[in-house]
Design a protein around this nucleic acid. Structure first.
Lengths: 217, 217
DNA sequence: TATATATCGATAACTCTTTATCGATATATC
DNA sequence: GATATATCGATAAAGAGTTATCGATATATA
């Protein structure tokens, strides 16, 4: 199992590196530069980058172009693959319109909803749920974004799984049950804000001890 | 309370517990039940809960009501505090309409944008950026959600800081620079999806050598 | 009352992640 | 060519987080 020594933690930082590397203009970039820009430890950056790009050179750093390519390769951004949105409410439609996905090799191809509202002014089709199965099979879509109301989440998820979706990004605040073969990632925005509230010390209970400014959680 | 023994990891799970506890109907709930429901380890749940609720009893479990209260207390949900949205685009307006924040003691009070579009049909005001400073000071708002285009992010963030915002939830994909006194949490949706793409094994780039299915991340 | 059982809390063992240290090397300067 | 310096990769140490184990205890049952 020595094929990918990429730990979860490292994996989570790779997109961050890519984001920054894309802004670098110089031919080479050192771990120290990256570390400073992203507020990470220099050694950590070196360790992360070494694990995916063997082109680092003493005194020089990493060749920017090569590093970017390697990052994109590992992150699977060479090709753009399609995703669907399930639940064409406000959030769902906002995500459809969001063009930031392309940078990461993803494209939202369509949305599905039980109530098909007017989608004539949208650039991408909003289709009735009944068509999801056929549509996803036909277009070989395996990634779905779930943005339905909590009450409809489980049923929608079931239909997604049934349609061949194997990876779900859920914005629903309740947990959903899926087979082991399907991966679910919850993106609880309210929860994120709540954490921020805590971190920012707006709740009487503060974790007052880490003074070295790393502000994740 | 001096219980600053709450690790980041634990902190991140507390809202998850709260979410589930709120659905529990029985008078008491055991760590095993919670663990099963959330797919966590039984011991881990016990450790987490023990750190915030001393009312666990052998053979009984935790008193549901008491546990909920303690969770809400630690998470600072006793009182609802206001937040503002900066950038009233599609995502910004979708977040304004999202009512899941209240469950976590947060409420979006208003939005600000450079171009003030028609907000007469919105329940909450969308105001011009120029008014942010005064408005936030007057209403004592210290949490902001940043949903402007990447190019406008830094300037908007500066204005937020200047308006007294000390915690920012950013949906912008570029890093923003803020003083040390301000906490920023990035919520990169595209990035989340990208990770999912990797996890779901759609980027055949991860395991080139023989792999035994090391399913990390 | 005695025994059995479910469950907690604490300690310890383990694993994962981060940080520190150090020798090696590419380039620059003398 | 010799020396200095920036930077890498590797190894080791330290720190966090997770999982396993075990004794203690509240209730149930005989």
């Amino acid at each position: 199992m020595r094929s990918s020594t990429l730990s979860k933690a490292t994996m989570g930082r790779l997109p961050l590196y890519l984001q920054f590397i894309r802004t670098v203009q110089t031919e080479n970039v050192s771990s120290a530069t990256v570390a400073r820009a992203l507020g990470l430890g220099e050694v950590q950056v070196r360790k992360d980058l070494a694990s995916i790009c063997p082109a680092g050179m003493p005194k020089i750093g990493y060749p920017t172009e090569r590093l970017r390519e390697d990052l994109e390769a590992v992150l699977g951004m060479k090709q753009t693959i399609p995703a669907v949105v399930v639940g064409a409410g406000k959030l769902g439609r906002a995500l459809m319109a969001y063009d930031g996905f392309r940078e990461y090799g993803l494209e939202i191809a369509a949305a599905f909803d039980t109530r098909v509202t007017d989608s004539s002014h949208e650039r991408k089709p909003i289709l009735p749920m009944e068509q999801m199965h056929g549509w996803c099979r036909e277009h070989e879509v395996h990634i779905g974004i779930l943005t339905v109301p909590a009450g409809a989440a489980q049923e929608a998820a079931d239909q997604m799984v049934n349609s061949g979706i194997t990876a779900i990004l859920s914005f629903v605040s309740v947990p959903i049950r899926v087979p082991d073969t399907v991966t679910v990632k919850h993106e609880n925005i309210a929860l994120s804000l709540a954490c921020l509230k805590i971190v920012a010390g707006m709740s009487n209970e503060t974790t007052e001890e880490d003074s070295h400014g790393s502000e994740d959680l």
